[in-house]
């Protein structure tokens, strides 16, 4: 299922609304990642985060938000790094169809 969606030079979606689970699967495949339940939980949380705050979180606020919403056993850098190849803020934002987080090294 290939729908039209534009992406920037680094692979982030240009339009939040162009996102779907199948788009996320395509991006995940490019990144060599197989999305499981634990990934989806974070991706949907990021979609909510963007709805609420209109920005893509850097690493620290991402960890804090996950801890707030899902508890400390998931809201920590070890868990998120493990899920998203060591760069949770950037990679999870890309998979969730968010723009690239600013203030992220």
């Amino acid at each position: 299922m290939s729908t039209e969606y534009r992406r920037d030079a680094e692979g982030y979606l240009m339009d939040l609304e162009a996102w779907s689970e199948s788009v996320a699967e395509v991006i995940a495949q490019e990144e060599g990642l197989v999305l499981g339940t634990e990934h989806w939980e974070i991706l949907w949380l990021l979609r909510d985060f963007y709805q609420r705050f209109q920005l893509a979180p850097a690493t620290r606020p991402l960890i804090k938000y996950v801890a707030q919403q899902l508890g400390p056993e998931k809201g920590n850098s070890l868990y998120l790094n493990h899920l998203f190849k060591g760069t949770p803020a950037k990679l999870a934002a890309k998979l969730a169809g968010l723009p690239k987080p600013t203030n992220c090294i």
């Binding site: 609420r52 705050f53 920005l55 979180p57 620290r60 606020p61 938000y65």
Partner: peptide, 11 residues
């Protein structure tokens, strides 16, 4: 203003 609400999450 939506961004402002995220300030506590940014510490």
């Amino acid at each position: 203003t939506a961004n402002l609400a995220a300030l506590p999450l940014f510490g």
